[in-house]
Design a protein around this nucleic acid. Structure first.
Lengths: 216, 216
DNA sequence: TATGATTCGGAGGGTCGTCTCCGTTTACCC
DNA sequence: GGGTAAACGGAGACGACCCTCCGAATCATA
């Protein structure tokens, strides 16, 4: 039912269309935007929305899973760079762009975490990014006091600029430049204060404290 | 009516309490959180909420005005620093901390802009920050390709980490360190791409594209 | 403490959003 | 084309939330 494989072409088309319109709707009007409006935007009846997604939560969950899949698609290019430093640059740049173009993401992540805090696809990235950071530091290119979690948070920060609307997307790369310059190992970098956060704490943070779903 | 000056102490106390709880509620549950819940949290009846604030929009507007007043309070310390570079540091740090501690702000700003796009208190800061940037650059401390608008956006980015909840507040200063190091004039900084945004465009951006209020 | 004005509390009418139900339509397969 | 299973549309029941209204409670003042 919530699977996108159906023998009927109209059903598959509507499913995909609903997902697309939902992403846009959630970005524009918030994650609690009326699903009747989703139906209207997708050009279908309200009943069709609920045949494809049992309720708002199921829809949110499916958007989340699709996002995790997109993340996996980004990995090869990032990790395949010539130097570890170049991988770090690509990591911040590509993921920042991806988050910036997915303004529905923060709310979706929080809602999913509220529905089921134990659901954590993507945890496998921890090792990979840790290794990447260590290699870039041993190359002498990445400052020593930075951690993989810091990179993740920086990506979040840069990506948060996407929430202001697509017309501002060309501009966040200026801030990206500043961040990357700040990440380079150099004589005279300012020591970073406070202990770094653990990876698990980062997950909790990026999935934390959203508007609660209506208790049902 | 919406003024906080009343001859009765209970009325003044409830008004302040409602504002405080509203800030917290909006941060936790979104700007459309039920006002009945606001009443419950503040320990008053629903009627009391509506005697103090005609509706949700009036409440949002009052929170916005209080925030602008807080901004003015921050100015003297920031501008009174020994060097312009130190002022820039303080600007990013103090404003970042203030935004991070005000997770209700982004939604409030957007809602206010939707209610009345011509309402723009705080526009007077433009000149001041422009001058500050110019002085820090002529000191040779701040990189030349950065603008006042870039600083504003960086503050937004850093402050966006506050939306994750108060327990993460100690951590964003690590990212602040990286940003400040990236802002320093140095041999070998990467040139910033794309044109900088105009100040007016920055205002529009930071007030843009929120969830729409229910048309009434 | 008594008085009068102000504020408070919370039940309830009206509105909007969610989700169901079922008669109608569409797509697939022969 | 004809037949069948699947999907569609949208009216409407239900519930949540907004905001009002007015009798009860509280505060300032003397």
């Amino acid at each position: 039912m919530s699977s996108s494989t159906s023998s009927r072409r109209d059903a598959r088309r509507n499913h995909a269309r609903l997902l697309d319109e939902a992403r846009q709707l959630f970005a524009e009007r918030g994650i609690d935007a009326p699903l009747d409006e989703l139906a209207a935007r997708a050009g279908v009846g309200a009943g069709t929305v609920y045949r494809h997604f049992a309720n708002r939560d199921a829809l949110v969950r499916e958007i989340y899973d699709a996002a995790v899949a997109e993340l996996h698609d980004l990995a090869p290019e990032i990790l395949g760079a010539q130097t570890a430093w170049r991988s770090v640059e690509l990591y911040v740049e590509r993921l920042g762009a991806w988050v910036a173009e997915s303004p529905f993401l923060p709310a979706v992540m929080r809602r999913v975490a509220e529905l089921d805090p134990s659901y954590r696809p993507g945890a496998e990235f921890e090792e990979v990014v840790n290794g990447l950071v260590a290699r870039a530091q041993s190359e002498g290119a990445l400052r020593d006091d930075v951690t993989a979690v810091d990179l993740g948070i920086l990506v979040d920060m840069l990506g948060s600029l996407g929430q202001y609307g697509r017309e501002y997307l060309p501009f966040w790369r200026r801030q990206l430049t500043i961040v990357l310059d700040g990440l380079r190992a150099r004589p005279g970098t300012t020591p970073m204060p406070a202990p770094a956060q653990a990876f698990a704490a980062f997950h909790d943070m990026s999935h934390a404290k959203g508007p609660k779903p209506a208790p049902r």
